[in-house]
Amino acid sequence: MNWMAWTELTAAFFSVIAVILVCMTVYEIKVPCTERKGFLPISTTRGDRLFIGLLSSAYIHLAFLAFTELSLMIALALSTIWLAVLLRWG
């Protein structure tokens, strides 16, 4: 695994993504979700909302890096709140 040049941070990042995917799968099996319409312009399933949330979180981080000197911790906190809001009301 040395050639992949792992760091603690990226390992943690991918572990969190993997844990999210596993949790969502288990949740889906226990409580199958139905498509519904929230504040987003299209009706979405839980998985759609997760994908939209993760992708927009990536863009939030990039915007922080491009336009501000603020710590990425703020971007991370914002993204987490955004993801939660999206999953609940999106």
Partner: peptide, 27 residues
């Protein structure tokens, strides 16, 4: 892709020398 993500947060000189630089390259 995972490897690319790993590379993107490090300054790599050769196979055994790499320094963690965080989000510096992105910035």
């Amino acid at each position: 892709i995972m490897t690319v993500v790993n590379y993107s947060v490090q300054d790599i000189f050769d196979q055994n020398t790499a320094y963690f630089v965080g989000a510096e390259w992105y910035r």
